[in-house]
Design a protein around this nucleic acid. Structure first.
Lengths: 153, 153
DNA sequence: TTGACACCCATGAAATCCCATGATATCCCA
DNA sequence: TGGGATATCATGGGATTTCATGGGTGTCAA
């Protein structure tokens, strides 16, 4: 099972390269594509990242939605058409395309955030704000983890 | 099932390393990640610890929520972004990151407290105070543990 | 020919490995 | 059941590796 946990801030060099955190690289190791799959988040000023295995899962899930429905098309267009395969170089870095950097407002620093089965890439300051907001919402709405069974376990 | 009970105080050396109690290590043995997963407790000045199996459960449950929904993102961000994987070295020690030490006020000693399926890491003195308070509350409110039968589960 | 990009090497800081030590707990046999 | 032999454990510190980062060079295509 893919596990992305933690927050890591790395530098973006003049060529637009960033090191993907070593722990993330390890969970991505051994997949059919040696790198990450990334696309613009449509909800936030961030880049979504995952491994090729997860992308395959998403394709499978989306294909369960009625083909030719508006939802299907919108999802497919937003996510799949925008996705890019970003291969690792010899030292575990990826090239963040300019379009992605623009979308997330990333210039010389990038923050990788584990989201469980996928991760996001943010401008470090924007991420801090987002984290605080997410925490507040989670608390005020008393969000809890769904349990597998009936009640508390 | 993971079981963490008891209290153990160990030293934090100059490199920031602490031995995880051997009994805890045994219940953590054989998981997909050889180490602990830790995050700041939002209720106390302590670090929460668990095994990767626990985190995988959390991920599985969060992933039951619609992907890219606000609820999913808020939960995932809140839970996973501030967690860290802390691997064991050859002798069963972990490196306590500075941020965690700051949060818990830990300098040269750390107390590991079993909490059932999780454990906590405290500054020994803070833990003593906390234990006394918890005992008092439990006594004055006559707290009970729900049984599996009639009531909550 | 001029970017964009893949590949290569170098570097310092930080994390990890490895070995040694003493203390404690456990085992085993009388 | 006592007590010595043996293993386990926590701890310390030096050596080694990993990691993030910087820059150079070659190659391909516009």
């Amino acid at each position: 099972m893919a596990v992305f946990i933690g927050t890591f801030e790395n530098k973006v060099d003049q060529k637009g390269r960033v090191s993907v955190p070593a722990v993330f690289r390890q969970t991505l190791a051994g997949l059919s594509f040696n790198g990450i799959v990334a696309f613009r988040s449509h909800r936030a000023d961030a880049i979504e990242g995952c491994g090729m295995d997860f992308m395959e899962q998403m394709i499978a899930r989306v294909s369960e939605i009625d083909l030719f429905s508006e939802t299907h098309d919108d999802l497919a267009t937003t996510i799949f058409s925008d996705s890019q395969q970003l291969p690792f170089d010899g030292t575990g870095r990826i090239m963040l395309p300019q379009g992605f950097r623009d979308h997330a407002g990333i210039t010389d620093r990038a923050a990788f955030v584990g989201m469980g089965q996928l991760f996001q890439i943010w401008h470090p300051d924007a991420l801090e704000r987002h984290k605080a907001e997410a925490r507040d919402r989670a608390r005020s709405q008393r969000l809890t983890i769904p349990t597998g069974g009936g009640g508390a376990r």
